[in-house]
Design a protein around this nucleic acid. Structure first.
Lengths: 345, 345
DNA sequence: CTGAAAGCGCTTACAG
DNA sequence: CTGAAAGCGCTTACAG
């Protein structure tokens, strides 16, 4: 048996359609659509209305999403493009997004890019196919010009990162913090504790790059030599590897290590402990993000309000999806960092 | 300006369509479709073919997903329904799914239910709307009969949990482990270490329920009194709350606490440490899942191969989506647990 | 070989 | 007030 009938139509017949309901009740398919979508249908006799709703319920009718989207040009879906859903920081952002979007009637889908160029390109294509009404994008590789097409399609976007200096392309809002200054502040804190050999571990792409700039600037200003350890991926294992390579330096090893995010810092902590070092007396550790585990481990870090960021992004998108929302000026949310001192440094 | 033209058609004109390409090149829209979708089109002159591809590239053409889905009855999307993406166990499953699905040409979307009945119902509706070609479902509340509609729609599903005793509904595959026995084994381990007052902390719904059964059975067999602390949600904070309530019992407090998952156990660890207790001498802690942080914290736990489970599910779905795949018999993956002893117990 | 037409399942302006 | 028709953007069997 083929999956298609003689005219090349796919067999959709397994799921009930408005046509099926209409046939069962003896009305037009359009009448079914009216009844199912409007709270009141003065043009349909209330007896007929009741029968339509009854049959729809019995058949377990649900509208075919693709058909509805094609006709109405709305998906009722917001997308969240994240580099790594296993990083609790991004997971927190997604939860904030979802918690705010659900009451407004929007589903939230998560698209994972792995923080790799190919993954981000796939996400871009996915968005260009019209699969969401709005997107919260956390991209490491794509440049502002890569979003030109989506902006021309009038897809509301909230992007993590600073708006480019040039004219702002509507309808895009931005959320960012001063990563350079936050990392600088943390570096100053470590220097203030008496550390002179301070290393930073980070990944090649993502916000760690700007954080490294702040770290390097402060180190040089203090007459100290910056030491970067760069890995391809952000994971506890990468943090372990980085710390192990630093420990291999023997007496010249750093006395403090600053992870560009908590996931890396936590891995580094583990490697230091496994090597028999005491934290912070033998080795101080600092991170960035303040993920839930950071509190547990006593990790000194930079707090970022993940849930609140997601909630803000959801509100911004929902505003833009209201009538006239596309013409609103671009808005920025610049949030402030907060250093959380714990025992690790 | 309205979002709709005079005939009620939504303005899609911002994005280029095959019609636009056809008009620019001077061919039929159908010819454009052929060229864009087939590697070879003997019926189209190669010169015309080149011009179509060139114009499509210049316009940044991407097919409208809803239109393609409506016509072809395929979404090229797999869905992953998870109770809590912030739980690293589920995040690991999703990554396994994604890593296997991407090379086969499938996008993976994540639908978060919060482990609540309403969220699961929303996911069910979402699936009934035909938004994915297959689904990996981790449901806490829905019963097998709730999936009858989807099975009738021939939606391939991989469900976490044991198949119900009755006839298996195609096309559903199951993956499960013996939660009762795994929890029993961990409880025996704790008893073997000399503990007599062992509490278990869990959430009202989810796999913890079956784990509690194993725990309770072993406790009773050993002549010990089971002690359950039940919270609504699974989070480190819930684990903190549970431990605090146990510590409030003073001298009658347990000497070991078994978390129904690592997230709860990690919260309990934190609360015990914050109360000045040494682990494991004052308080032993055990968990379930072996999330990445468990290793860092030295948590004794039950390992589950999250990534591999996701990969298996992806393979099962992809098999079913091949011609004839819907008729394959239902398959089960029963995986074996492994107790990982670390310092916490 | 080539192109026009049908139709997937919906929503909604418009003609009777 | 009521229902039939148009059309969203595609894919594909089929008529010329």
């Amino acid at each position: 048996m083929s999956d298609h009938d003689a005219t090349g139509r796919p067999r959709h017949s397994v799921r009930p359609t408005q046509k099926d309901i209409a046939a069962a009740v003896g009305v037009s398919q359009a009448a079914v659509s009216m009844v199912l979508n409007k709270a009141e249908t003065p043009s349909v006799p209330s007896e007929t209305r009741k029968r339509i709703l009854k049959v729809a319920g019995e058949l377990g009718y649900q509208p075919h999403h693709a058909a509805r989207t094609l006709r109405s040009a709305r998906t009722l879906t917001l997308a969240s493009v994240v580099p790594d859903i296993t990083n609790p920081f991004y997971a927190g952002v997604v939860r904030g997004l979802q918690t705010t979007a659900a009451p407004a009637g929007y589903d939230v889908l998560i698209y994972n890019t792995d923080g790799r160029p190919e993954g981000e390109q796939r996400a871009l294509k996915w968005l260009q196919q019209g699969r969401a009404d709005g997107v919260v994008g956390m991209f490491y590789h794509l440049r502002p010009s890569d979003f030109g097409t989506l902006a021309r399609y009038k897809l509301p976007m909230v992007l993590f990162g600073q708006p480019s200096g040039k004219r702002t392309v509507l309808p895009v809002d931005y959320m960012f913090m001063d990563n350079v200054e936050a990392a600088a502040a943390m570096t100053r804190l470590l220097i203030g504790k008496g550390h002179r050999r301070i290393a930073m571990i980070l990944t090649e792409f993502g916000p760690g790059r700007r954080r490294a700039i702040g770290y390097q600037a402060v180190m040089r200003d203090a007459g100290l030599e910056p030491r970067l350890v760069i890995d391809q991926t952000s994971s506890p294992e990468a943090g372990v590897r980085a710390m192990e390579s630093l420990l291999a330096e023997g007496d010249a090893r750093p006395t403090a290590v600053f992870g560009a995010n908590d996931v890396l810092a936590i891995g580094a902590m583990r490697a230091a402990r496994d090597a028999g070092l005491s934290i912070p007396s033998d080795m101080a550790i600092a991170g960035f993000d303040d993920v839930p585990t950071a509190g547990l481990l006593g990790l000194t870090t930079v707090r970022q309000p993940d849930f609140e960021l997601g909630a803000w992004a959801a509100k911004a998108l929902i505003e833009r999806l209201k009538p006239g929302g596309l013409e609103l000026p671009s808005r920025n949310l610049e949030w402030t960092f907060e250093i959380v001192e714990r025992i690790s440094a």
